[in-house]
Design a protein around this nucleic acid. Sequence first.
DNA 1: TACCGTATATTT
DNA 2: AAATATACGGTA
Length: 658
Amino acid sequence: MAHDSIQLPCGGDGACMRCKVTPPTEETLTCSICAAPWHVGCLASKPETLASTLQWHCPDCSGDPLLPPSVATDGSSSELFVAIKAIEADESLTEKEKARKRQELVSGRVEEDGGNGKGESSVLDVLDESLNCSFCMQLPDRPVTTPCGHNFCLKCFQKWIGQGKRTCAKCRSTVPPKMASQPRINSTLVSVIRMAKLSKSNAAAGPLKVFHFIHNQDRPDKAFTTERAQKAGKANAASGKIFVTVPPDHFGPITAENDPDRNQGVLVGECWEDRLECRQWGAHLPHVAGIAGQSNYGAQSVALSGGYEDDEDHGEWFLYTGSGGRDLSGNKRTNKEQSFDQKFEKMNEALRVSCKKGYPVRVVRSHKEKRSSYAPEKGVRYDGVYRIEKCWRKVGIQGFTVCRYLFVRCDNEPAPWTSDEHGDQPRPLPAISELKKATDIFERKESPSWDFDEEGSRWKWKKAPPPSKKPANAADLKEGKRTRKAIRHSRKLSTRERLLKEFGCLICQQVMSLPVTTPCAHNFCKSCFEAAFTGKTAIRERNKGGRTLRSQKNILNCPSCPTDISDFLQDLQVNRELMDVIESLKQKSEENEEPAEEEPMNGLEESTDLGSSDEKTGKKTENVDPKDDLENALPNCEEERTSKRRKVDTAQVGDDDL
DNA sequence: TACCGTATATTT
DNA sequence: AAATATACGGTA
């Protein structure tokens, strides 16, 4: 975790890691998110108000999540400051209790929720009771799960690790090095928590908004152009039909109007197998290059694929590196070695134009980015739009100059890794320490074209987007016929049922019993999980096979991904917190047992029945696709999508067709 | 690890 | 209009 800030918290011994002094209590400040203590004297900016003191977020945490809107009142923060100190000094309290007390102090309430009487609303309580992160006592933000089955916020966990701890904060089990260095976000929990929150906030309001994670269902009309290309495999394939009708120089989200096939647009969280498939949905058109743009017009999208080691990903914001500086002679497509300096020209200039104008830039993340906690584990995922707030040049890791860009998220839909019900709100820019050594610093002077509209509480175009210079994809215009959208209805599931559905085992697809969570953040029934390894011993002799046999340790892969989880298998721990949640949900579901009216669940064939005379090869029927229902709970997280299964989500009420 | 079909921006 | 340069892919 490269911390950009030179501000540092106090270490395990209480000494400030920056100035090395152990500050007195009154000079320490505790982060309300990660609970780490900081030396006030070493902070660049101190909270000024009472409220902000109580809700103070440390530089690590505040660089990223929303800061509480700064309160205008000045204040004698001292009293509350003192109150907090008192709590912290109270030896009779456990850390947990302290954290809770702090929270209560801050919020001035004992427990959120309370009201809303209806049984439905208390699903949040169910999660709350079992799943809370023991650092901040909130439902985990970007939840990560230790092999011992305890759930924390990513940031709280990283903070803990950053203090040199290598044990679980809850049970003191050892945290494996891989988990410490590359914690994976547990997407099932992300979805479930968000869903629970949504169900609460929408209890009285309109239909529940669910974020679909839909897999690309069609293949290109013409996947290959030449025999040779076909033979050589996908890497050499022509990219095929573009399904959306936006022009190639379209900026911003792709909306339903431009998605004739599905009429829903490209939603945050959508995943594709590879860059070619991603391209077909228009999220990022170049199938090799990381930047889509034109130097005199702007950049529409970027990919984070781990190709540039200077990149630094913090989720809602990241530092991106320009392209070029590499020797591509010899017919190479990429080259890890940089051999000359980058300049603000071509694609790098295009990015600078988007910065200058404040255009929204679509961002996709690829599984190839291994250093980021926010990368999908497979394929390519659309993560929404970001703005480039500033750019500059600096000497990169390899010693040559690189162009740098600060991307900050500004999308109306929540990012795939948060459980927030809403998208971004304007956030303060993170402090970037490398700016001190930067040259050619460029910041936007004019007001951004894409900006937050306070009235509507949404991001939108404040100035007209630049006129497209290219024709919209004509492929779809040829047949005027609209795809008939499959009608899929199912009986309306209660919130609890839908939540339960999220807890599907990745193997049996039933609601998990005795759930276990792998270090790679996949969830299974304990029995299914174990069954997947029966007959495979932890020790195996490898007499054959071309390789030399080195360690005796068997490589046992997660059933959902290539991660070696043999260590995890050795000491299999049930995720009890998760299990408690499931049990409570089940129990309450049965209690409330309302006979739901069965509605016909019809065919949901995913629309391959294009009205046109397409030579659809009718392939892609690889999946038996058990019509979904509670029993066939398909987890709907992109991280969890392992096969070509299709998510059949039906939560939207008005999703009928023409 | 080597290698190549492709798409597109930019230059000729 | 055609040629060239470039690109954070993907596969055997």
